[in-house]
Design a protein around this nucleic acid. Sequence first.
DNA 1: ACCTGAACACCGTTCAAGT
DNA 2: ACCTGAACACCGTTCAAGT
Lengths: 218, 218
Amino acid sequence: MTTPTSDRAPLDRNAIVAGGIAFADERGTDALSMRKLAAGLGYEVMSLYNHVASKAEVLTLMVDAVAGEIPDTDSAAEPLVAVRTLAVDTRAALVRHPWAASLWLRQLPGPARVRHMENHLAALAATDLSPRVAHLAFHAVNNHVIGYTLQEQAMAYVTLSDGDAGALARSFMEGLSEEDSPHTITHVRQHLDGDTASSFELVLDLILDGLTRLDRAL
Amino acid sequence: MTTPTSDRAPLDRNAIVAGGIAFADERGTDALSMRKLAAGLGYEVMSLYNHVASKAEVLTLMVDAVAGEIPDTDSAAEPLVAVRTLAVDTRAALVRHPWAASLWLRQLPGPARVRHMENHLAALAATDLSPRVAHLAFHAVNNHVIGYTLQEQAMAYVTLSDGDAGALARSFMEGLSEEDSPHTITHVRQHLDGDTASSFELVLDLILDGLTRLDRAL
DNA sequence: ACCTGAACACCGTTCAAGT
DNA sequence: ACCTGAACACCGTTCAAGT
């Protein structure tokens, strides 16, 4: 029979990263501290430093783990469809982990994100877009995925109703005057009415079409 | 005659925000602390709290001040040209203050940013785009401006040569294998060769054209 | 090899005391 | 009205000591 000396899981890089992701999913990266992370895993803070160099490294590993959740492109698929699918899947991962989008571009890519880039760039190279336009396409698509997700999260924040954030959001809304900011009020109302649901894919297709057209024009 | 009791400027909201911007322009928002900010202005930390509720408020005010630097749209201009000009000017402000892009979408808009939104939305409303497409346009253009700038800054980070960041960047580059990541290597090389200089406006026009086309299709 | 107590140099923020 | 000393409850990180 085994003797369970403690109920805590063994500590290693993976456990730390998984703990960080679980914490951030629930309470955000702003609230994440090495001390709370360690406590959540059943260890003292200093133990973390046996496996990880710094908090910055933990964050980098966390973002890379999110990248690792994104399925590889299907090499049998039509290349532009593969790009489109990758964009949709990337967005899904960023929605699952709402803290990840704002970190995505601030961290150096780890292995999983390099693999993600490689997937994206290889699919673009397999289209008949010129190398120059394929390069633009990479960024245009990425910026849309990240920008759209960030914007959506900001909007979700405005619609919060309870807590400090809710109070801030309410005071923002009440500060808008119909006289000075009619268009802004209308715009926010369009969000609240939720009539812009599937615009992520609409704009994505707009960009993909535009790139094809640009390629023919250059 | 006056008796100069000290060489420090009087403390108020504006001085705090200006000090924060100057500090962040030089050393980034990560390094910004209330204590260093106060010291830079010649006061003790606690004095700041006579004028400002929290560090979060300082950051919100800083972003809003950046928005305030962006010129209003010219109501005499052709509406779609006004949108384009606003996008270019917004990007210029974000380039002048490299810390601002990643904060832009994380803060609730202050008065200057509401004015900026109003400018943008009013110009779009004056085009002959349908309300639905104008709504999409607002986000598509904003996401491009912010995403492009963030991406460019991440790239600038990779090309740093000295300090800790430089060492990290070098180890990232050396970690890329020609075998596993040929496309990624090519992509990074395209950046380093700088042959993608004016692609910001190229993609911006692609989006604006795409929106006009989408409007006709819907 | 991995865990940890103690310590260091920082944080943001509050409050009571000064002028 | 505005400035500030002292204090509180936190941070990330290092290092030497334990097993």
